[in-house]
Design a protein around this nucleic acid. Sequence first.
DNA 1: ACCTGAACACCGTTCAAGT
DNA 2: ACCTGAACACCGTTCAAGT
Lengths: 221, 221
Amino acid sequence: MAQTPARTLTREGIAAAALVVLEREGLAGLSMRKVAAEAGVQAASLYWHVRNKEELLDLLGDALVADAELPPRTGGWREQYLEYGRRYRALLLARRDAAKVVAGRLTTGPHVLAVLEDQLDRLRAAGFADADAAMAAYLLSAYVQGFVLQEQSPLSAAEAAGASRGQAARAAGDVFRALPAETHPNLVALADDLTDPDMDSRFEFGLQRLADGLAALLRQR
Amino acid sequence: MAQTPARTLTREGIAAAALVVLEREGLAGLSMRKVAAEAGVQAASLYWHVRNKEELLDLLGDALVADAELPPRTGGWREQYLEYGRRYRALLLARRDAAKVVAGRLTTGPHVLAVLEDQLDRLRAAGFADADAAMAAYLLSAYVQGFVLQEQSPLSAAEAAGASRGQAARAAGDVFRALPAETHPNLVALADDLTDPDMDSRFEFGLQRLADGLAALLRQR
DNA sequence: ACCTGAACACCGTTCAAGT
DNA sequence: ACCTGAACACCGTTCAAGT
């Protein structure tokens, strides 16, 4: 019954196994031992290919953007920039805990580099100065990652135990409405606005503000 | 020698102990056992006051914004909004791993609520519609958290082992410059812009874009 | 009501040893 | 060169038992 040894364990294979474990167990449940098992190998074997867990997570982060589909190169820079943001968000939402993996992780993996290269190319072609193009790219990733991080996280540790986002939002709204109106009049008044569960609209709002801000930059050149 | 038992363990005391451990060991080193030891108690005792580690981190997240100083209520809404962003960033940078703690954590702790209440009050006074005020507040926190998360994280797992940000940035620039110019011409050309270690300027750039975007919103009412 | 001791089922990482 | 077995020093969490 001796299973034939993997013998072909590679960094790509490790990343693929990590993706499977991430989807099944979430980031909190992703251990070196489970990734190793998924790859058909002992935990200690991973350390031949990878310095530590942090480096494995770098691999995973790059693998997460491997199947990114770039927006069509049609229309103005603005529409392309918006589409970039929307697709990046969709990509992160599509995989469990993806934002948590990617958020504070500045990798120079091949897939990340390819996307960045393409995005910079479009921004420069649109007329942005070099430094502004670099900033615009950085800005978009910070916004999308920050947004999805909030979006993917449970509304509170208390609600983590089951409850749809709609229910959780209503519960959060109740918290606001229950506050004393003398001390927190604005929270009481805006309870509905603050807990609007339509995340697409919220995301789009911020994205449009970013694009507006960048557009102003382009006009004054 | 029997140390007098804590007897006065409270949620506030736990949060204070957690702050100390966070500063000393970082988020990765913050364990229930160490927080308990810092509070002069056994690990199991914490579970009387807190459901699990996640709830303890919620407490910690709220405690982190406890000593936030709100910007002066002078000048236009724009300057106040900018100052809000700058001070929030400074607050997160002042404490070790603060952005990681706070990032995907939607708490309704008292300190968080107080800040949000104040911010909404200013935005509404400036003439923003209710929904827009709620969005503007959400947008700022997503941006600042996303930005500082990148800023506080090591530039790459490889460089994590010592090396100033300036050095790390130069190393990252070398990575870009070393890419083949045929496949990654923009990364090669913008290597300096992409790795500019002046994070204050980068942050300010994004912040100004956000304010510009919101200003456009205000004009069209 | 609040805290402890002891246990359970895990972790990441190292390192000699195997092939 | 690559993988394993076994160990080390930890984890979060539970639960009977103490006061």
